[in-house]
Amino acid sequence: MFKLIGALMIVSCTGIMGMIKAREYAMRPRELRSMQSALQMLETEIIYGATPLPEALEYVAERCEKNISRLFRQVEQELIVSHGCTVKEAWDRALYLYAPPFFQKGDTSILSQLGNCLGMSDREDQSKHLHLAMEQLKLETTSAKEKAKSQVKLWNYMGFLAGLMIVTILY
């Protein structure tokens, strides 16, 4: 009896671990996509509205996904609170605190790169930089999607199968 309960626990544990891993793969393209649309919104605000950065960030934060909105709101707060800090400083601090959870290092560095030029040039130039970042994110998204396709199923099964394997060895 105990053996059976133990075996069930092992299987469910490894199964859940596998599912968590699979979720990571599944969520990354989604997050990348919503970051893209957030940047798109920011671009619209900057190019057509000529809205000052803090207000533009606030506007975007109100309209995008929770994980990303946290980042934008943090940048806005940093800009308002610290007197005269650069966008780069604010952006990097916010990325350190609230980087979207499923982003990988490469994804974050695209954003960090964007922080270098945000705000400090004319609209044409801003548009170019934002487009570059969006383009890079798009590439990441396609590769992340492909990875997700194979990996999600794999990890979903692998968790359970590994559990079953352990159980059969020990039983």
Binding site: T51, P52, L53, A56, G84, V87, G119, D122, R123
Partner: peptide, 17 residues
């Protein structure tokens, strides 16, 4: 100078074209 510029423009030079 850079700090004043940032504060004047709210870090958004593009808004002041």
């Amino acid at each position: 100078i850079q700090r004043v510029t940032r504060l004047v423009s709210k870090s958004s030079l593009y808004a002041l074209e």
